[in-house]
C-alpha cells in the first residue's frame, strides 16, 4: 500500500477513536451508574484512550514510512458492487423473503467474480438458493424470512 492512503487510513482511525471518546462525555452518561463504583463509560474510556494512543503511533509510522510507488492493481468496482448487492439483498429480504433475494444475490456474486457461463450460473444460483432454504428452514428447523408481497 502506498504512503498517502496509509496516512489517510491512520487519520480516519484516529478521528473515529476521538469521536467515540468525545461521545463518552455526552450528558446522558453522567447520570448513569449511580450506586455502582464506576460509571458505565469507565471501561470504554480506557479502551478509547488506548485506541487514540495507538492511532497516533500508527499515524507517525505511516508518515515516516518511505514513499513507495507501487502500481495499484486492486479493482474497486467489483467489491463495491458486491457490497451493494449484499446490502440491497438484506434490505429487500423483509419483503421478498430469503429465497427471493438469495437467488439474485448468488447470481450477482458469481457474475462479479467473473463467471460468465450464464445458463450454468442461473441454474446454480437458483438451485443453491432453494437448497440452502430447504436445509435451514425445513431440515434444520431454523425459520427464515418469508415472501410478504401479496
Amino acid at each position: 500500500m502506498n504512503r498517502t492512503p496509509n496516512i489517510i487510513f491512520a487519520l480516519a482511525l484516529l478521528l473515529l477513536g476521538g469521536a467515540l471518546f468525545a461521545h463518552s462525555f455526552a450528558a446522558r452518561y453522567a447520570a448513569m451508574g449511580i450506586g455502582s463504583p464506576v460509571n458505565p463509560v469507565f471501561f470504554p474510556r480506557i479502551l478509547l484512550g488506548l485506541w487514540i494512543l495507538l492511532g497516533v503511533v500508527i499515524l507517525i509510522k505511516a508518515i515516516r514510512s518511505p514513499v513507495n510507488f507501487k502500481e495499484n492493481t486492486h479493482r474497486w468496482q467489483e467489491p463495491l458492487g458486491m457490497i451493494a448487492a449484499v446490502a440491497v439483498s438484506i434490505w429487500a429480504m423483509r419483503w421478498l423473503g430469503y429465497i427471493g433475494v438469495a437467488g439474485p444475490l448468488a447470481f450477482a456474486c458469481g457474475w462479479l467474480l467473473g463467471y460468465r457461463r450464464l445458463v450454468i450460473l442461473i441454474a446454480i444460483a437458483a438451485l443453491s438458493a432453494i437448497f440452502t432454504w430447504w436445509l435451514f428452514d425445513q431440515a434444520l428447523g431454523i425459520p427464515l424470512p418469508r415472501w410478504r408481497l401479496t
Binding site: A106, C109, G110, Y115, S128, L144
Partner: peptide
C-alpha cells in the same frame, strides 16, 4: 472460485441470521 464464493455469501447470511 466464483461459485464457491457464492455459497460462502449465502451461508454467511444464513448463519448470521440463524
Amino acid at each position: 472460485e466464483a461459485l464457491l464464493m457464492m455459497s460462502v455469501i449465502l451461508l454467511s447470511i444464513l448463519g448470521s441470521y440463524g
